[in-house]
Amino acid sequence: MSEVTETGVPGDLARHPRTPESDTPVLEVDDLVVEHRDGGTGTLFRAVDQVSLRIAAGESVAVVGESGSGKTTLAMAATGLGPRGRGDIRLLGHSLSAVSRTQLRRLRPEVQVVFQDPHGSLDPRQSVRSGLRELRALQPERTSWIDDADLLGRVRLAPDLLDRYPHQLSGGQAQRVCIARALLMRPRLIVADEPTSGLDVSVQADVLALLRQIRATTGAALLMISHDLAVVRSLCDVVHVMYRGRVVEAGPCDRVFGTPENDYTRELLAAMPGARWRSRR
């Protein structure tokens, strides 16, 4: 946790009330297939093809792959937030195809998402405060553990940002607000879809440190989508490499990055940012 002290994170993040209690996997996906229909021609495009994925409680899993390989589609479909796919998805042991609407609504806050574009992740017509108020109204029990000012403190934002609107926030600030909103729900899985690629280089490290710290203190599992191998290595235990909708290689980070078995993985490793960082380490 060297970054934590470096950036002066208050230590009370450790008092987060939830710890992983069961060993049910947070997310299990078997043979997921997701197809997009092209609006113009009506042809089907298979964005995710026969993907299986398992995230244990508190585990940190990365999905890497080139642009358009289906990472976002996979993450959205696997968490039941995006397009429906074929295949079996179990969220905390509940099969998504079998749960009722009310059960689903109760399950949903267990998964929270942080996106690449922080401004697009906030309703432009809502101030930070009223956005949080809405989340509290939606999930009163889940969110009562902390007040707004403390919550912002945990993502290292000053409480006077509460009355700002999204367009009055910098990219980094907005991303922290997004992380705070996710944190408020005390999720068991955080999906981070390239959470730093929309940000200035100087802010990227801060946001990553924050994510790492939240993981360490809350025990939430992490599904990280990234282009940046350095990020993946420093944050994740397991990596899945996607190519054209398929997972071509999966395994512990060290193994996959150290001795890649698949030709595409090798190519990707050579091309991706962070490869140089790897050799320096």
Binding site: M76, T79, L81, G82, R105, R106, R108, P109, V111, Q112, V113, F115, S121, L122, D123, E134, L135, L138, Q139, C178, R181, M185
Partner: peptide, 8 residues
């Protein structure tokens, strides 16, 4: 998507 995840 975020709102859906919050149970809206």
């Amino acid at each position: 998507v975020g709102l859906r995840a919050a149970g809206a």
